[in-house]
């Protein structure tokens, strides 16, 4: 695939305008397509609507009726979730939401910083150990997570980082680095070397080239990588539950899971919690969706 500036400059280059003046009737195959899409989308979203329904219906039972529309709308589940305060009067929910947010944000930013520099090196420089390094990063994807839980616990304990936000941030950012390196490297590979050569002749140092030329041009890929890192940190449950020792340090997924008892699930609380945990990610997805399409490909295409 050519790397001409045209293709680079617009991440969603083939977003051709949809509406054509005067085209009212869709051809029959078109209608069939819409029909299929509507049905499929409905099916896909059905479980989601269900969760919403259980969140808005009062009570803790698993909703029985098939319809995804709640029979009565009540905010009591949400209110109970949000209003939780502990004995000392701390607004627990706010602290937990804040924890989630701070941890997810810090770990994705840190992860991107680490990954971008490494990906740039892998993309642009040839140095001994390059292949080994790439392979090593890929290998980390293959470590079964279960094996890591206890060693990580012990390691964080040793470093004195248990029950701290910093501990979780470090763990999350490190686990997101390999995948981010993979994606960003792919994207960096598609930036033409000539741009950097011109900058070299212009007198820019390597660092400047990285920060002022390569990074701004990689905005789509960085957006997508950020999204993935944020999402996995935000959703992570088991490590957060294990490493944190006080309720004020918990994150939102821990709250959601507290609705699961030994015998049963309190569906109202669970659904409300699920809504809180999922909504920001969905919103982020919506905001960054055009980058998702562009950014992923650029990471994958080796043209």
């Amino acid at each position: 695939m050519s790397t001409s500036p045209e293709l680079l400059a617009s991440p969603a280059a083939s977003e051709t305008p949809v509406a054509r003046p005067g085209k009212w009737k869709e051809s029959l195959p078109g209608l069939a397509r819409h029909g299929f899409l509507i049905v499929f989308t409905g099916l896909t979203l059905w479980p989601v609507m269900w969760v919403l329904k259980m969140a808005f219906e009062p009570g803790q039972d698993f909703a029985f009726s098939i319809s995804p529309i709640p029979s009565t709308i009540s905010f009591e589940n949400f209110a109970r979730l949000i209003g939780k305060t502990d004995n000392a009067g701390n607004w627990v929910f706010a602290r937990q939401a804040l924890n989630s947010f701070v941890i997810a944000l810090s770990s994705s930013l840190l992860g991107i910083l680490f990954a971008a520099t490494a990906a740039y090196a892998f993309s642009r420089f040839k140095f001994p150990g390059r292949r080994a390094g790439l392979l090593a990063f890929l290998a980390t994807q293959m470590f079964p997570g279960t094996m890591m839980m206890i060693p990580l616990y012990l390691l964080l304990n040793y470093l004195g980082l248990l029950d701290t936000r910093l501990g979780l941030v470090l763990v999350y950012s490190t686990t997101s680095v390999p995948f981010s390196v993979w994606m960003l490297k792919g994207y960096f590979d598609t930036i033409p070397k000539e741009l950097e050569e011109a900058a070299l002749i212009d007198g820019a140092s390597q660092t400047r080239i990285f920060w002022q030329i390569v990074l701004p041009l990689s905005a789509p890929a960085i957006a997508v990588t950020f999204l993935f890192s944020f999402m996995s940190a935000w959703n992570e449950y088991i490590l957060a539950a294990k490493f944190m020792d006080s309720e004020l340090h918990y994150t939102l997924p821990v709250v959601v899971n507290s609705a699961i008892d030994a015998k049963s699930v309190r569906w109202g609380d669970f659904a409300a919690g699920a809504v809180f945990v999922s909504a920001p990610i969905v919103a982020l997805f919506l905001a960054l969706q055009r980058y998702i399409v562009g950014g992923l490909t650029a990471g994958g295409v080796k043209g």
Binding site: A136, T140, M147, V177
Partner: peptide, 18 residues
């Protein structure tokens, strides 16, 4: 130098526990 932060973090927090 570019690779060091990422590699270092990954070594400490992923390879060592592994």
């Amino acid at each position: 130098a570019y690779v060091f932060p990422a590699m270092g973090a990954v070594i400490v927090l992923v390879f060592v526990p592994f």
